[in-house]
Design a protein around this nucleic acid. Sequence first.
DNA 1: TCTCAGCATTCGAACGTTCCAAAGACATTA
DNA 2: TAATGTCTTTGGAACGTTCGAATGCTGAGA
Lengths: 352, 352
Amino acid sequence: MPRSSNPSAAKGGPVTLTQVARRAGVSAQTVSNAINSPDMLRPETLERVRRAIDEMGYRPSRAAQTLRTRSSRLIGYGIQPALSSSPVLDRFLHALSQAADEAGYRILLFASPSGGPALDGYEELLGQHEVDGFVLSGTERGDPRQAWLTKRGVPFVGFGRMWSGRQIGDWVDVDGASGTDAAVEHLVARGHRKIAFLGWERGVSGAGDDRAEGWQRAMRRHGLSTRGRRGQSVNDTDAARMAVKPLLDAGATAVIAASDMLALGCYQMLRERGALPGRDVSVVGFDDSPAAELLSPTLTSLAQPLEEVGRECVRLLLDRIASPDAPPERLLLEPSLVVRDSTAAAPHGAAR
Amino acid sequence: MPRSSNPSAAKGGPVTLTQVARRAGVSAQTVSNAINSPDMLRPETLERVRRAIDEMGYRPSRAAQTLRTRSSRLIGYGIQPALSSSPVLDRFLHALSQAADEAGYRILLFASPSGGPALDGYEELLGQHEVDGFVLSGTERGDPRQAWLTKRGVPFVGFGRMWSGRQIGDWVDVDGASGTDAAVEHLVARGHRKIAFLGWERGVSGAGDDRAEGWQRAMRRHGLSTRGRRGQSVNDTDAARMAVKPLLDAGATAVIAASDMLALGCYQMLRERGALPGRDVSVVGFDDSPAAELLSPTLTSLAQPLEEVGRECVRLLLDRIASPDAPPERLLLEPSLVVRDSTAAAPHGAAR
DNA sequence: TCTCAGCATTCGAACGTTCCAAAGACATTA
DNA sequence: TAATGTCTTTGGAACGTTCGAATGCTGAGA
């Protein structure tokens, strides 16, 4: 017999444990056991209970479970207004939500006001015992949240490491340096030697410095000079356009940008000079934003493994909830280079 | 005495209603009343109870409230992978979350699989009585969710109207036609006559057809011809680049695009022809995505009032929860034209 | 036959809140 | 004084689940 489509709406309120128990001819506790520790039951009884559950379309009430077990199976996430306008956050949120679902948890959103993360929202969710833990993102320099949560013994995981001071708590992050390093490898393999880096100003963004660092170390490893090959700009196509100019003037045959937005600025300057990205100068972006695929020529970019980040955030958080005193766990994941049309072999004669 | 910073962590479990009652020298019920219907208490008693609540840092347990009142004060939102890659959704989510917070509700996320909205997630949340209602977005032609939810009597509000068949349930939407109409007005006031529209293919997107419609009616109102002024493209800068070419060849001095992405394609084609957006040809985008401000020249674009949409979604949903049988309410909000550098007076001599 | 495990199941209580009905306090009126 | 009414407060039960301890059942060993 197929499960009836919506028994609970048919009459009265929702189906309860006790009703299922009556139907299966067992006690309520046994039905509970059938769900939570099935191997405690005699196979025959289990089968009978399961049939009753199925026929009646029973679903345990989350509220009652939460009340009794003191665990809501909810993860709090403070959503910030997209000040950084990172194309990453909403994809991350989907990945996070999916990973949580698979673990039997859900994401509970609350609005974090703009202008620095306030702690009020966290306090309120905790006070009402609504969540079992938090996932933080958009962590800034001197972010107070980690210390605050640690002090109260609240489980949390950050997406993003601490960029200043000592590390606190668990986190998952993407290894930006390793990404730009791989981009250099990719370009070197295609004959490029004069590889420039276009990033943000030094010191304002930990992630930005990290990405520059990877480029630098890979260049050094190949014995290539980085002098005069590093440009700085704010995250704005026009500023990027200007910042990339001296790099091109110095003969760079490839540019690695710290974001797709910056890469777009490179595109504009190249167009102005009558040069074609890919054919004349190779360009690599960072984040693999939706635009990367839509630009023409399509943009080679470093994709953050957001699904994996989401999965690992959930895993680390659940581990932390299970054992609050275990040593902190930190995970650095590799971005992957998505090669598209904006990178190709170095123009002949420019190789050295 | 200031409220102690974290009483519940100090010792034992969280503070309960009964503990507060004991301290204030009243019954538990009275404390409950102090919170839910304060004017039932004698002012003197109320004051005493309030002090106790404050001193002990009491917060009601959401789980117990939910169990007793059968209302979780949670709103479900099925988050979809950003297939449309609309820059709108994460800003909407923040607005929604904020509006919900202000009404004492919260947003509960669940992952909706890609490739069409499946109903499983909705079923599961309902079965466990986790949410009081849903907010839908990314509604497509023939979306089954509205009918399904209506059949089970579940409150919901859509962000986006039904584009095919008859309207079902409450919704809030942005009046795209009114937006493009306003864009035409803006351009006409600056002397433009040959105003083209670059949209998506007819019939694939209700919102797209709507935006075209507004352009068309405004043109007609001003006695301007639309023949040969409408271009079609998929949402891709390269396709847009090609699609806008014949429009420019036909002498258009302004282009209204159905999305910022399409507008970016216009920029590219203009650059190729040595023309400058704003000075030579005016361009208007749609959605006011973060990129609009970062392009150079900055892009005039139609901004959706997302904060208002979020607020109204919550309001309509709560109304629906309060009175399930009230007639449906539908709201069409106006986008606002954000004027930047890509629109200016028509070049002299091209005015007619 | 009796005792002792081991297993499967059940019983009673508890989680923290709100609903409902009833009790108490107090002033007003007959 | 007793009856009536209004305003404030209280007691007991219930929401649906899981915890901990206790029960009944079965067969092995003495």
